[in-house]
Amino acid sequence: MKIREIVPLLEAEVLCCEEDLDVEVCNACGSDMMSDVLAFVKDQTALLTGLVNPQVVRTAMMVDMRCIIFVRGKCPTPEMIALAEEGHIVLLATKLRMYEACGRLYVSHLAGGD
């Protein structure tokens, strides 16, 4: 699925890196614990989280993710947006809660990975 297709599915707003919206993501994970992301992520390329601090973006960078989706209407800071731009990571924001956002992606065949 292209990141572009996630936007309407989650009624999301694109916060940066619009030029990368055609990047393909084949699976995703949802977590507020960054160490869990670092421990268990294999090739997931999108992260859903309700956590807002620069370490979310750095964690995504470390595991080569291409897209972060902030749930529950959380909004990243300008510093986080600058970091994401540097790392070519698309930031999206949705008002949906974690469960609903993950569910919509899952039924649209965005896998969880293993």
């Binding site: 507020d32 614990m33 960054m34 160490s35 869990d36 670092l38 421990a39 989280t49 956590l51 601090n53 370490q55 979310v56 964690t59």
Partner: peptide
């Protein structure tokens, strides 16, 4: 609350 402190750092 910042997303760390799960005790996974050293094992990772």
């Amino acid at each position: 609350a910042l997303g760390f402190g799960a005790g996974m750092g050293l094992p990772n």
